[in-house]
Computed example of a mutant assay.
Amino acid sequence: MELYQLRTFVTVAETGNLTRAAQRINASGPAVSAQIKALEEELGLELFARTARGMSLTDAGRELVERARRTLEAAGELLSAAGSFRAEAVGVARIGLNNEPGRLRMTEFLARMRSDHPRIELHLMQYSTADALDGILTGELDAAFAYETANDPVAELKGVPLCRVDMAIVGPASWRGRIEEADWGELSGMPWVWFPERCPFQFLLEETFAHKGFSLNKVIVGDNDSTLRALVAAGCGLTLLRRDDALDACAAGDVCVWEREPMSLALSFLYRRTRENDPVIRAVCGVLEQVWGDGADVC
Rank of each mutant, 00 (worst) to 15 (best):
N26C: 13
G44V: 01
A210V: 06
L43T: 05
E88A: 12
L6D: 03
L288F: 09
I36M: 03
L288N: 00
D297Y: 09
L240D: 00
F9P: 00
S33P: 07
C256M: 04
S80V: 08
A38F: 10
E2N: 15
V154H: 15
G222Q: 00
L122T: 05
R272T: 02
E121C: 11
L288G: 02
E261W: 04
E40V: 04
I281G: 07
G237P: 03
P191C: 05
G44H: 03
Y4I: 13
S188C: 03
R112T: 06
V219M: 06
A168C: 03
V170A: 00
E66F: 13
E88R: 15
G16R: 06
S188P: 01
A266E: 10
G139Y: 07
E66K: 11
T239V: 04
E206K: 11
F9I: 04
D294R: 01
F209D: 05
A146V: 11
Y4T: 13
R53P: 02
M106T: 12
P279E: 06
E2G: 09
V92G: 07
R86H: 15
E207P: 09
G295C: 04
R243G: 02
T208D: 04
E42Q: 14
G135R: 05
M113W: 02
E197I: 14
E73L: 15
G54A: 02
A52M: 12
A173S: 10
V12A: 01
V298M: 11
S128G: 13
A111W: 09
T15F: 13
N17F: 02
D142W: 07
P118D: 01
I179L: 11
S115Y: 11
D59T: 14
R105M: 10
L39I: 04
G171I: 03
F48E: 06
F85Q: 14
N17K: 09
D116F: 14
L247C: 03
E276V: 14
A27I: 08
L265I: 01
G135H: 07
R198P: 00
G295T: 02
A146N: 02
T19S: 15
G222E: 05
L72S: 08
E73V: 13
A49F: 10
L240G: 01
L97I: 03
A230D: 12
T227F: 10
S84G: 03
R24M: 11
W292G: 00
S33D: 08
D152P: 06
V287T: 08
N151A: 14
E186S: 10
A68N: 04
D59C: 09
Q202N: 14
N17S: 11
L45D: 07
